[in-house]
Design a protein around this nucleic acid. Structure first.
Length: 818
RNA sequence: GCCGAAGUGGCGGAAUAGGUAGACGCGACAGUCUCAAAAACUGUUGGGGGGCGACUCCCGUGUCGGUUCGAUCCCGACCUUCGGCACCA
């Protein structure tokens, strides 16, 4: 009688033993190749839902596979623990964010242990603990000293009623404060930035990383490199000393078509250039744009608006005097905050010119253009017209000719602009790493000395639900002495964006308890860079870009000696529920715990890998999970049943063993290839097929004992990365030595894996008409002969002339006939 | 609007290199077991037509074209869905 499989008993038994034996404990080992396989660590927002498992279980299987292949695998786990949700929970539940976060971590760790991950828990890191954020602060200081961190004024959402800064998500429709419904304005306040733009050019280069191309494309688009020319327009305004207005354009070929110029409302020249008769209108407009949020203002849906300043600038290339407007479609933070408007060849300028009745001057003739009025901006290449000496030139050539002309006359210079902005890292929040800066009336901005780190987050700060930095009201924190002059000083009360914590955590795993620096350089040298990173694509232009920036900056600081954090990247898809992404706020989270309790972690792991290609994700639907459960029961039954069969020493016939060994080695080959490329669904399909085949072998009972043994051991070893518990249990029940997870992954014999007989497909004019089993060694001439001799084929060829035969080795013969 | 990915049975999906479309699983149907049900096991299962039958023919991978001996795969146009960006001059 074969005992029933008890998943819950077996799983907890092995989990305890693995933990007690420390089989997943990782050490540096120069004798083996290292493999650093990292899954993006989870945010500590509560329970792990099925989406987390979808990210972690297949990644764990892949890491286990690499272990079995002989790599020294670092596959660590930790928690991204600072941030807004914890603080919001603290406010709404009256519980401290630390308590709430640590409770969540305890629960998530328990869930991950139940998943059966091969994590080395000795290396766990938690970003909100001082032993971690001490080094986040240390890195900030390194950046500060290198000129990569600076303070500047930046516009933020400001609620005049609450007297506080609001995050973008706190601004509700029509630009109102979510709390008091007052109209939010934009206000410039001092904020800390990291100079990521210094690395814009290097970040564009994806040649050293093997990442999905769509992620590279998203990063390139985000960085948004544009080649153009910064051009000076002549300015002669009474009482204004500045004699030029600089604009940036990517279309110098259109410069003869400029009919007006536009400043961003925030441009510093606006106030000085506005003439008295336009002042009232301009001031009103500037004020109205401040009422609009960035999001609202940037929307292409809203109609363009603007006002005339009363001032004029002169286009140096043709001496034309054009009016100067202000409009909020011009952004202060891109280029020079001013544009030359060419309505004929730019759709935004075109719309604006139409609305305010400004002239539209064609300087690039569309094909077949007869001088008629344009119905829309013509933005494509064409022939130059109305452009003096450049007339008749193709516009693409004129681009360079005019750029040269501008440069040689000192009207401007070629430049490159990026869409990427510096990274604003200040958060008016409590639950984050304090920025280690002290303000002193005598010495100004003073960095906290390294030896005084960490700047501890005071546990007893009172948070007010205002959105304003709570640390501001914590006197014990704010009041300090200046590290330089020892006079009274005030601490910076903003905290760092949590994306800073996750920009270097992968380095900390190499030496998580090191206390002489953020990491032990020797350990980092051994483990880094990450060989395989896995996680969601939603981090394409945030975390993944920031981490690349950090590594490049740290390299230039001499801290590390590699260029990219993550050599390979794989993005798993998203599991959705009720057509929406799973999240607590949507109330559609699926908790894996009940599935684990009912069917076991192995089944849940395998099911998540089986539902489809890992990079596709999909709607959560548990209707197929019983299929996996059934398969596991069949494997269990099959392996134990096989133990009770008295297998013959010699197979009944050589053919039986030959086929069994062929199927075994073919499966090993297929599974190895699929695991390598994260094709978990087809890997499991192959293992199911193998199981079905072995069931037949077990009922025939005619294979030899050794061939059966080989097949069953292969099945368990191939299954071990996916189902670590059941495979371990069966491994021990068939009398093998502990642990299956310390066994080498099976290797296949190419001769045995190769097909001996193939199905030769015979087509007539491309349609399948017959299939013939032939030896794989068949020659081209033989195959053609076999094809033509089939009676079915002959009947199709009756009365036709055979024109030619197409032969695809090992596959088919196509008879082309007329 | 721009950039990117994807459309295959009732469902999730397979087809690694332009060469057997629908592997594997779910569901459904029929059967075995059972007093019965569940579970388990066995068989059938893309659509349509013909044959008592072993079988056989036609259609079929979002739509319409094209290239090719041959297209789920390559090319062009279009439709739909999803993801990203969204006045970046």
């Amino acid at each position: 009688m074969i005992p029933k499989y008890s998943a819950s008993e077996t799983e907890s038994k092995w989990q305890r033993k693995w933990a007690a034996d420390g089989i997943y404990h990782v050490r540096e080992d120069e004798s083996r190749p290292k493999w650093y396989e990292l899954t993006m660590f989870p945010y500590t927002s509560g329970d792990l839902h099925i989406g987390h498992w979808y990210a972690m279980a297949p990644a764990d299987a892949h890491a286990r596979f690499k272990r079995m292949q002989g790599y020294n695998v670092l596959h660590p786990m930790g928690f991204d623990a600072f941030g807004l949700p914890a603080e919001n929970a603290a406010i709404s539940r009256g519980i401290h964010p630390y308590t709430w976060t640590m409770q969540n971590i305890a629960n998530m760790r328990r869930q991950l242990e139940r998943m059966g991950g091969c994590y080395d828990w000795n290396r766990e890191i938690i970003t909100c603990l001082p032993e971690y954020y001490r080094w986040t602060q240390w890195l900030f200081l390194k950046f500060y000293h290198a000129g990569l961190a600076y303070r500047d004024k930046a516009p933020v959402n400001w609620c005049p009623n609450c007297q506080t800064v609001l995050a973008n998500e706190q601004v509700i429709s029509e630009g109102r404060c979510e709390r008091c419904n007052a109209t939010v304005t934009r206000r410039a306040i001092e904020q800390w930035f990291l100079r990521i733009t210094r690395y814009a050019e290097e970040l564009l280069d994806s040649s050293r990383i093997e990442w999905p191309e769509r992620i590279n494309v998203m990063q390139r688009n985000w960085i948004g490199r544009s080649e153009g020319v910064e051009i000076s327009f002549e300015l002669d305004h009474p009482g204004v000393e500045t004699k030029e207005l600089r604009v940036f354009t990517t279309r110098p070929d259109t410069i003869f078509g400029v009919t007006f110029a536009v400043l961003a409302p925030e441009h510093p020249l606006v106030e000085r250039l506005t003439t008295p008769d336009h002042r009232a209108e301009v001031e009103e407009y500037v004020a109205s744009t401040q009422h609009r949020t960035e999001i609202d203002r940037l929307s292409t849906e809203t109609e363009k608006t603007g006002v005339f300043t009363g001032a004029y600038v002169t286009n140096r290339v043709n001496g034309e005097r054009v009016p100067l407007w202000i409009a909020d479609y011009v952004l202060p933070s891109y280029g020079t905050g001013a544009v030359m408007a060419v309505p004929a060849h730019d759709s935004r300028d075109f719309d604006f010119a139409r609305k305010y009745d400004l002239p539209i001057k064609v300087v690039i003739a569309p094909p077949g253009w007869q001088g008629e009025e344009l119905q829309e901006a013509y933005v494509d290449p064409g022939t130059m017209v109305n452009s003096a000496q450049f007339d008749g030139m193709p516009s693409k050539e004129a681009w360079h000719a005019i750029a040269d002309f501008i440069e040689s006359n000192d009207y401007g210079t070629r430049t490159v602009s990026y869409r990427l902005r510096d990274w604003l890292i200040s958060r008016q929040r409590y639950w984050g790493a304090p920025i280690p800066i002290v303000y002193c009336d005598q010495c100004g901005t003073v960095p906290v000395p390294e030896k005084d780190l960490p700047v501890l987050l005071p546990p007893d700060a009172e948070f007010r639900p205002t959105g304003e930095s709570p640390l501001k009201y914590c006197d014990a924190f704010v009041n300090t002495s200046c590290p330089r002059c020892h006079g009274p000083g005030r601490r910076e009360t903003d905290t760092m964006d949590t994306f800073i914590c996750s920009s270097w955590y992968f380095l900390r795993y190499a030496s998580p308890h090191y206390d002489q620096g953020p990491f032990d350089p020797q350990k980092v040298k051994y483990w880094l860079p990450v060989d395989q990173y896995t996680g969601g694509a939603e981090h394409a232009v945030m975390h993944l870009l920031y981490a690349r920036f950090f590594v490049k900056a740290m390299r230039d600081l001499g801290l590390i000696d590699f260029d990219e954090p993550f050599t390979r990247l794989f993005n798993q898809g998203v599991i959705i529920a009720q057509r929406q992404k799973m999240s607590k706020s949507r109330g559609n989270v699926i908790n894996p715990d009940e599935y684990v309790a009912e069917m076991g972690a192995d089944v849940v792991r395998a099911y998540l890998m089986f539902i489809g290609p890992w990079d596709q994700g999909g709607e959560w639907d548990d209707s197929g999970i019983h299929g996996v459960k059934r398969w596991f029961n069949r494997v269990w039954h099959l392996v134990l049943q096989g133990q009770e069969i008295n297998w013959p020493k010699q197979a009944d016939s050589q053919e039986v063993d030959k086929e069994l060994r062929h199927m075994t080695h073919r499966t090993i080959k297929k599974v190895t290839g699929d695991l390598e490329r994260f094709h978990f669904n087809t890997m499991l399909a192959a293992l199911m097929e193998f199981t079905n085949y072995l069931s037949n072998v077990a009922s025939e009972k005619s294979a030899s004992a050794s061939a059966w043994r080989e097949a069953v051991e292969a099945l368990l070893l191939l299954l071990a990365p996916t189902a670590p518990h059941m495979s371990e249990e069966l491994w021990s029940r068939i009398g093998n030595t502990y642990s299956i997870h310390q066994q080498p992954f099976p290797a296949w014999d190419e001769t045995l894996a190769a097909e001996e007989r193939i199905t030769l497909v015979v087509q007539v004019n491309g349609k399948v008409r017959d299939k013939v089993a032939v030896p794989a060694s068949i020659t081209e001439a033989e195959a053609k002969e076999v094809a033509l001799s089939q009676t079915k084929v002959k009947s199709y060829l009756e009365g036709r002339e055979v024109l030619k035969l197409i032969y695809v080795p090992q596959k088919l013969v196509n008879v082309v006939a007329r």
